[in-house]
Nucleic acid binder design. Sequence first.
DNA 1: TATTGTTATACTCTATAACTATA
DNA 2: TATAGTTATAGAGTATAACAATA
Lengths: 153, 153
Amino acid sequence: MPSSGGERLRLQDFLPYRLSVAANAVSRHIARAYEHQFGLKNAQWRLLAVLADEGPMTPQRLCGRTVMDKVTVMRAAQGLLRRRLVRRLANPADGRSHRLLITADGKRLYHRIVPLARAYEAQLLAGIGGREIDHFRQLLRRIEQAASAGREG
Amino acid sequence: MPSSGGERLRLQDFLPYRLSVAANAVSRHIARAYEHQFGLKNAQWRLLAVLADEGPMTPQRLCGRTVMDKVTVMRAAQGLLRRRLVRRLANPADGRSHRLLITADGKRLYHRIVPLARAYEAQLLAGIGGREIDHFRQLLRRIEQAASAGREG
DNA sequence: TATTGTTATACTCTATAACTATA
DNA sequence: TATAGTTATAGAGTATAACAATA
């Protein structure tokens, strides 16, 4: 009988652990699939999706929208630029900044991936009711906010 | 209006993305707190918790119990060994293998961390009912299993 | 001076493979 | 030969800091 006295904690029941394991399994699956089928890293797929859905935006704003590090966004953008899936839009008013814009090629690739992404999401949630899914999403958001609260990055 | 034709996907509503963002925020918080207060990396904390709660076990089994890479377990174990928080138990029947055993120092440290871990978990779930939490955990497990299914690695 | 983008450096976790010593 | 543990190497994401160009 290990750890006889004092408090104990089952890692298997520790929410941060379960959250991490689940998220990693999902991310790893997607990373492998999209890398294999489309040559896109996770970070690149995130950028492409945001640019396709929300229009041109600066690298700085992309960091916020994708919750990724500045360096990660930089490297992902460079890969997408090299493949001509996005291009730069200069900012006449401010020579320092620019916006990234998805190209026609980028949109085509994006529209090939969307159905697969939806299908995988459905597969993850197979057999779970719509109300349950909504509720799950809400709790996930609350946990995310609780975890993000009180950090000034 | 970006992405006028074809299917679109809001990254902000894409479950794998939300899951990843939430898990990363939680993991980052813990990593910083425990690194700062106890000098423990996430991987080291996982090992310590499993060894404290489940008793001595081989590195191989630890990989399975913590869902971490072999190399990650190796490096984490080396750190814990260096600090005498765990030690090796030789296996007389098989000279190749051994088990890792948490030491008295390791247990002391573990028992200092447990209340903090519980408190943080409670903080993440503040204001959420017990039944809701159970349900959330169930769905998380289902998603994890759906994501892990069909990989032989 | 402050900010945008960029590069450099380092660290963690992961992935693959090679190596050792036992079996 | 196969396996447990170990080490080497490389990649992705993160964190910090430095730098150039512009404001």
